[in-house]
């Protein structure tokens, strides 16, 4: 299975949300990382056929997804960024309605199984309007998964989940990921760090990095520095430099700095993580490649 984005651009009235996206995906979990406003949701909506790109097309195994129409939507599971359902339907009824719409197995057994899967079985007769944020989210996940989709789009799926639920959700995703293309858009690195096969970094509507997770992490290997200091210095430095975070370990504080070159004497290289990758590329102040010195 090959999903190919070709020259996808999207322009809202004055704003260019996506600029010439070209990328090819195969089975695996893809982390679409980017800050708010990078264009992730726009791209997800284009893939799901909810909005039309200004230019470009998407192909599944060489076939245009727009002309595939129903056949494409059949293999699709979509959890949008802010999904909602009908407040007066029960969880069970929502599952039933959407499995009918998705032309999936809508037997009671299957639906209960799915509800069990997302831990909503006991609340299946409660009205959706009475669900908590986390329950709503989990129902959205169950709806997205009910047709056992080949292509699964998850747009910030963990928003509103508590840490335990996040872990649970991560496990669900890695459990079902075999032979699927899973597109996981998020700005929360820890959600995808351990499960993403590949990482795509999206910035201002453009792909700035794409590759295997470990390779992408390796790319910034020599740019991550640690510096042991005290609380006050660390605080001052992080306030003034957005390319640094302070990590407390016992009495000392370790400053973790992203920098092309050694930021100052006494700093030493350390292993990079996906978090560092994110810091490296999306340092909000835009001074990511500057060489700062400790004042």
């Amino acid at each position: 299975m090959k999903l190919k984005f070709e020259n996808i651009s999207k322009r809202y009235k004055t704003k260019k949300a996506l600029n010439n996206i070209n990328i090819e995906l195969e089975e695996g979990i893809y982390a679409f990382l980017g800050p708010n406003g990078a264009g992730k949701s726009t791209l997800m909506n284009i893939l799901a056929g909810i909005i039309k790109p200004s230019t470009g097309s998407i192909y599944l195994d060489g076939q245009n997804t727009v002309s595939m129409d129903k056949d494409f939507r059949k293999v699709l599971g979509y959890l949008p960024q802010s999904p909602g359902f009908y407040p007066n339907f029960t969880g069970y009824e929502i599952m039933k309605y959407f499995s009918v719409l998705k032309e999936a197995d809508h037997s009671e057994k299957k639906i209960n199984e799915m509800l069990e899967f997302v831990n909503l079985y006991d609340d299946r007769k409660k009205k959706y309007g009475a669900y908590s944020g986390g329950m709503k989210r989990r129902l959205g996940i169950a709806v997205a998964l009910i047709n056992d989709p080949q292509i699964l789009i998850l747009d910030e799926p963990t928003a509103g989940l508590d840490p335990k639920e996040r872990i649970r959700f991560r496990n669900i995703i890695s459990r079902i990921s075999r032979n699927k293309i899973i597109i996981y858009a998020t700005h929360i690195v820890s959600d995808v760090e351990s499960i993403a096969d590949k990482v795509i970094l999206l910035k201002s509507g453009e792909i700035i990095e794409f590759g295997d997770t470990d390779k992408v992490i390796k790319n910034v290997e020599n740019k991550i520095w640690l510096y042991d200091t005290d609380v006050d210095t660390a605080e001052k430095y992080t306030l003034e430099h957005s390319n640094a975070v302070a990590v407390k370990s016992g009495d000392i504080v370790k400053l973790r700095i992203v920098s092309e070159t050694k930021p100052f004497e006494g700093a030493y290289n350390t292993d990079s993580t996906l978090e560092d990758v994110y810091m490296y590329y999306f340092n909000e102040s835009g001074q990511e490649k500057e060489n700062d010195s400790l004042v």
């Binding site: 056929g49 129903k70 699709l76 949008p80 999904p83 909602g84 359902f85 009908y86 959407f98 032309e103």
Partner: peptide, 22 residues
């Protein structure tokens, strides 16, 4: 407009059910 006001439309319209049918 219920699908829009509740936020269900993206899910509803990405189902194969057939827009005409719906």
């Amino acid at each position: 407009t219920l699908d829009y006001s509740t936020g269900a439309y993206q899910i509803v319209f990405s189902t194969p059910g057939g827009k005409k049918k719906l």
